[in-house]
Design a protein around this nucleic acid. Structure first.
Lengths: 334, 334
DNA sequence: CTCCTTATAGTAAACGTTTACTAATATTTA
DNA sequence: TAAATATTAGTAAACGTTTACTATAAGGAG
């Protein structure tokens, strides 16, 4: 419990130099006598010595950490992304430093700083708002950067994007096909590019189909699920109620659904609802949620692959993932 | 993009010694002339210098990292725990290193090693199986340790426990009260203490009520949700079907529900089902799930508080959280 | 038996910090 | 005015590694 053993202690006990111990540990083909190996091994066991990565990092300047910043871990979409990230990172021996920005710009900034100071090898960030300065700052420090969902006009940044606009367009098309003419868009704050793109797709599809009714209900809080209730309440105050709703993501959709249900609005009988993300549980909801599927785990895996590509000096690229409409029970013909 | 600036570069440009720069950065009340401060500030700006935490850690031996090991991030229970952990940790300026053991003992062991090598200040672990050696190894290295869900007979280890046995007992009582006499327990591998405790509660409550029917269906995979289908299939093979099910957790419950529903078994008309955890979305399921509530976020927060207590030399304690029965629509009178 | 090579191991510098000492001024106190 | 103290800053060692150099011995080649 006292001081931790160092390579010096091992060297002393094994009666060799620290260089030899270091070579033994790095196990890189440098020849060491069997006899020597054995005594080092014993010393290590005896001291239950564990190498100090901090010392190593300082010397080699080779970090095995990847920073990951996400807006919230409470929306199951992100744990799925993280799952993909961790899976790939683990394969390569990397660890992840997970940070939750809570959609707070300051907190995000702070986390970025900390991660840089911790000498992460790369950074995967699902940023709130597009903060060009933030990104360029990271890149200028020589840290590999992959951005999720947010398109940036910056070279050297990997980008795993999703066609949000098209997704929204598909969702609205579906609703129109079902005969809906009054479709509202319920959303958390429209700060992220992804959300703005959903709005774009919503507007565009309505316009393309000469539908004049449109209603965007935005709430100024960031707690997806709880927002649902607020959004539902705000919606019910309107006098010209929609017959269908597009929610900015599945969690918001659930919140809205729950609030509406509690207030005697039947889904999908009275109001149809479409979500966004297709998180795993969406098929089990009551009613099962019609939604736009976004490949979360794959996003994470691609991000890591991209990160390694950048680290290997390959040209960084953009990948645009395409949406898929999943029709379930929360939408019906009017 | 070239080499990162160091404190030496800053000192050179500001025309002061590195000691002064270090003092300026640590901002600990050591008096520095305004003039000097200004030139250091300029130099830092000019170089866009960021301190290297690795250097600092090596010198001070003060890590600001907490390792967190969880079995899976795909069961929303854990993200909620992580949320609590991160919240508290952030307040104290700590970062978390998140590791997903995937319920793989080797991987868990490997992660523990890595985290120790990374010199984490403390470790919060929701271990698969109780591995006494693992725990004692960590403690003997002077690393603060908090175990979640798993009771260990080891001093110096903080423990945030949950009364699983009582929870199961409550669930079964509820089902018995509804008139069910044939209740099955569907579970992922019975390796963790928590799961064994649920089994205990299940058995005990049946025995206390002189019910002879019992059926434990266990599946040898670790993917909660997907397990549900396997468990459902296995169950339907039996010839003496139960009228009610206790699932080892909510995710498994959903998997089972989905499989059964697809196979024309109506819930709760044909079979009642009780889950375990009460993850956030459980009230939105189809049907809303009756379950045993386990305070996830609070568990995370308590774990961090405990960790800090241990770090401050206070006596480590155990906390036992109590279950609550949440009755919803997935259970009904027979 | 000299010269090369190979196998094996040690020495010491370096990575980027912090901090205990020391030092030099300036200011106060008696 | 001398001594004491406060303010400000520098020197250099240390943290635990890795690694370029150097060193020794032993075995072959000529």
């Amino acid at each position: 419990m006292g001081k931790k053993a160092t390579i010096n202690d091992v060297a002393k006990i094994a009666n060799v130099s620290i260089a030899t111990v270091s070579r033994y540990l790095s196990n890189n083909g440098y020849p060491i006598k069997e006899q020597t190996k054995k005594s080092i091994k014993n010393a290590i066991l005896q001291l239950s010595y564990t190498p100090n990565i901090v010392g190593r990092m300082l010397k080699t300047n080779k970090s095995m950490d990847i920073g990951v910043i996400i807006p919230t871990i409470l929306n199951p979409y992100y744990p799925a992304v993280i799952y993909g990230i961790e899976k790939k990172a683990y394969e390569k021996g990397y660890n992840i430093l997970l940070c939750n920005s809570q959609r707070d710009a300051n907190r995000q900034k702070q986390y970025v700083n900390t991660l840089i100071q911790k000498q992460v090898k790369g950074l995967i960030i699902s940023s709130i708002g597009d903060d060009f300065l933030l990104y360029s700052d990271i890149v200028s420090k020589g840290i590999a950067l992959v951005s999720l969902e947010d398109e940036i006009s910056l070279d050297k940044v990997g980008q795993v994007l999703f066609n949000y606009e098209k997704g929204a367009y598909m969702a609205i098309s579906h609703l129109l096909k079902l005969g809906h003419k009054k479709i509202a868009f319920l959303t958390s704050p429209l700060v992220r590019k992804s959300r703005k793109d959903i709005l774009k797709g919503y507007i565009k599809c309505l316009k393309d189909n000469n539908v004049t009714y449109n209603k965007v209900v935005e709430i100024n809080e960031e707690n997806e699920y709880e927002n649902g209730a607020l959004l539902g309440a705000k919606l019910l105050l309107e006098d010209d109620l929609p017959t269908a709703i597009l929610a900015v993501n599945d969690m918001v959709a659930y919140g809205v659904m729950q609030y509406l249900t509690q207030n005697k609005v039947k889904i999908p009988e009275d109001i149809s609802i479409v979500g966004f993300d297709d998180i795993k549980i969406s098929k089990m909801m009551n009613p099962a949620l019609t939604t736009i599927s976004q490949p979360s785990q794959k996003t994470g895996e691609l991000a890591v692959s991209m990160l390694f590509d950048i680290l290997e000096g390959k040209e960084s690229k953009k990948i645009l993932l395409e949406p898929e409409l999943i029709i379930r029970a929360s939408t019906k013909k009017i």
